[in-house]
């Protein structure tokens, strides 16, 4: 199957001479959820900013759908790749949630009915019926974030990029993000997540790309990446607590990485008669 986003040997050098990403190769297929991990300054954001053309590769090539990002306008690419910024305050400016949702579609010069249907779809997806006339700045931060996401989704891009969606969110907000990502996937979108939230990745149990010092050092399923001690240490990452805990239990199924509490409980139920043996780490 042809990948939807294809990154080929891409490097990006900022005008100040800093090389933010070096020789990256990455294919993202339809229906995938990809988490991009790495410490601050490792090049995660630079990489994803290439997807909607905010940055153009200084070397290499990126194709989104059939479009070469070098040759297309950001406004056109943005209809395929929605980018939700970390701080919703950078995006929202209209006096009501409804206008905010319609803004992207209006920029694409859609017809009134078309805008109406798309906005309605976003309202249904995000359950925003009661907040349509609120001013986005009167909402709390997680609601505002949701409005920002909904306003991107209203354009119904194929790919949705979430830049640190759980940062600064309370537990409820984080759970909602998880729910939304799963929903996007069900709706047939590709989701690209930049995050430091290992718990979120554990729950999503998705493909994980690890960046370190401008380079891609791992690209595999979360369970594989999280169990690779070398890579985790190199990138300065720590797997979710439950995975660390599971790694200490020596008589656990060695072949499997446990990413969620539920998976451990399941194992415990299945191995009731055995004692849990805690070792010094595997």
């Amino acid at each position: 199957m042809e990948p939807y986003i294809s990154v080929k040997n891409v490097s990006h050098k900022y005008p100040n001479g800093v090389t933010a990403i070096k020789d990256i190769n990455l294919d993202i297929h339809e229906g995938e959820v990809v988490a991009i991990l790495g410490s601050n300054g490792s090049g995660k954001t630079t990489l994803v900013k290439h997807f909607n053309g905010l940055l153009k590769p200084t070397k290499g090539e990126i194709t989104v759908g059939t479009m070469n990002t070098k040759k297309e306008r950001i406004s056109k690419l943005s209809s395929r790749v929605g980018y939700v910024f970390q701080n919703p305050n950078h995006q929202t400016f209209l006096p009501s949630v409804k206008q905010e949702l319609a803004y992207g579609c209006k920029n694409l010069k859609m017809t009134e009915e078309d805008i109406e249907t798309r906005v309605q779809k976003a309202i249904d997806l995000f359950r925003l019926e009661d907040r349509l006339d609120d001013n986005p700045f009167d909402l709390n931060s997680s609601q505002r974030k949701e409005v920002a996401m909904a306003s991107i989704m209203a354009v119904s891009p194929k790919v949705i990029v979430l830049d640190e969606p759980t940062t600064g969110q309370d537990h409820k907000g984080c759970k909602r993000v998880l729910e939304l990502v799963r929903m996007f996937q069900r709706e047939g979108h590709i989701v690209v997540l930049i995050t430091h939230d290992m718990h979120l990745i554990g729950e999503l149990n998705c493909r994980t790309v690890v960046m370190n010092q401008s380079e891609k050092i791992a690209d595999d399923h979360a369970s594989v990446v999280f169990s690779d001690k070398g890579i985790m240490e190199e990138a300065g990452l720590q797997p979710p607590q439950i995975t660390q805990f599971a790694n200490q239990i020596t008589n656990l199924d060695e072949m499997k990485t446990y990413l969620t509490v539920e998976s451990i409980i399941e194992w415990m139920k299945a191995n009731k008669e055995e004692d849990v043996k805690v070792g010094t780490g595997s």
């Binding site: 905010l54 910024f85 992207g104 694409l108």
Partner: peptide, 18 residues
């Protein structure tokens, strides 16, 4: 710096700046 981010954020909402 903020202005740059805002501009990128609006471009991500299909705003044609050119």
């Amino acid at each position: 710096r903020e202005a740059k981010i805002v501009m990128e954020a609006q471009q991500a909402r299909c705003l044609d700046v050119k």
